[in-house]
């Protein structure tokens, strides 16, 4: 029961604004720390790859951002579902704030993937199964963001884009497997050099650290966006005036 009460309290915009505000500095500091450690280990400590030499170091950004692009979509669809089913405004705010962040991770994964593919496959873009489904995931994100922007009234926009996110999340695995199937049909299984089967610990450590760092980064940026979205939505309520008072008497 105590947990429910916490969530219930957390879900009120005023409480969320305050709690998120207090959490952001700590989260940001940890994120920065982990990013620095991850970069140091990834760029300096990890040995060059016997096959790809130094270019594999792009993996430390490409793989975490690809994971994050999928993870953020799941969070977006999940919170959208919560918002639609239990009509919690905050859940919609979190879902719609996640969309641009997820899209940026997807775009980053695509760019780094193509940058990594060029030295290895000799072409800027290869219709590799993973890159292609990542591209389609970007389209799904753009669809949700475009639909959200198309409505004037915020509440309808949140709920319509939320439904699209849920429909999208059902299609993500279908699209992924149909692209995998399509890819093996045309090119034959390209030698997947990305996830080397037995990854050397000195390479695995930075990868995991960077992934956790990206996760925390998502949390920080999400809370920042959501806070100001909540403040914007609740601008008529008195706690916003108190906040403004307290900010600049």
């Amino acid at each position: 029961m105590r947990l429910f009460r916490f969530f219930h309290r957390f879900a009120s915009p005023r409480e969320f604004f305050r709690i998120a505000g207090s959490m952001i500095p700590w989260l940001a500091a940890t994120t920065l720390l982990l990013l620095l450690i991850g970069l140091y280990l990834g760029l300096f400590v990890a040995p060059p790859d016997y096959q790809q030499g130094e270019s594999y170091r792009i993996m430390f950004i490409h793989v975490p951002s690809a994971w994050m692009s999928l993870f953020v979509y799941m969070v977006m669809a999940g919170t959208a579902a919560i918002g639609l089913i239990w009509r919690i405004k905050l859940a919609h705010v979190i879902a719609m704030s996640s969309a641009p962040i997820g899209a940026s991770f997807t775009f980053l994964a695509l760019v780094t993937g193509s940058l990594w593919g060029k030295p290895m496959w000799g072409a800027w873009w290869v219709w590799d199964a993973r890159l292609t489904s990542e591209l389609i995931l970007l389209f799904l994100y753009l669809g949700v963001m475009a639909l959200y922007a198309a409505f004037e009234e915020r509440r309808t926009a949140q709920r319509a884009a939320g439904i699209l996110a849920i429909v999208g999340v059902i299609n993500v695995p279908i699209i992924h497997y149909s692209v995998m199937w399509w890819n093996t049909l045309h090119q034959g299984p390209t030698v997947t050099k990305f996830d080397a089967p037995s990854i050397h610990p000195s390479m695995l450590a930075p990868l995991l650290i960077m992934s956790v760092a990206f996760m925390l980064f998502y949390a920080v940026v999400l809370l920042m966006r959501a806070r100001w979205e909540v403040l914007d939505q609740e601008q008529r309520s008195n706690w916003v005036d108190d906040y403004l008072e307290q900010l600049s008497p």
């Binding site: 270019s55 980053l108 940058l115 920042m224 100001w228």
Partner: peptide, 27 residues
């Protein structure tokens, strides 16, 4: 970077830029 300087640093540069944008937009 063993000859791959352009690719590695462009990738890390893009990553830094995108992360920065994500922070600057809410501010």
């Amino acid at each position: 970077m063993g000859g791959y300087a352009f690719y590695v640093w462009t990738a890390y540069g893009m990553a830094f830029a995108i992360l920065l944008i994500n922070v600057v937009v809410p501010i």
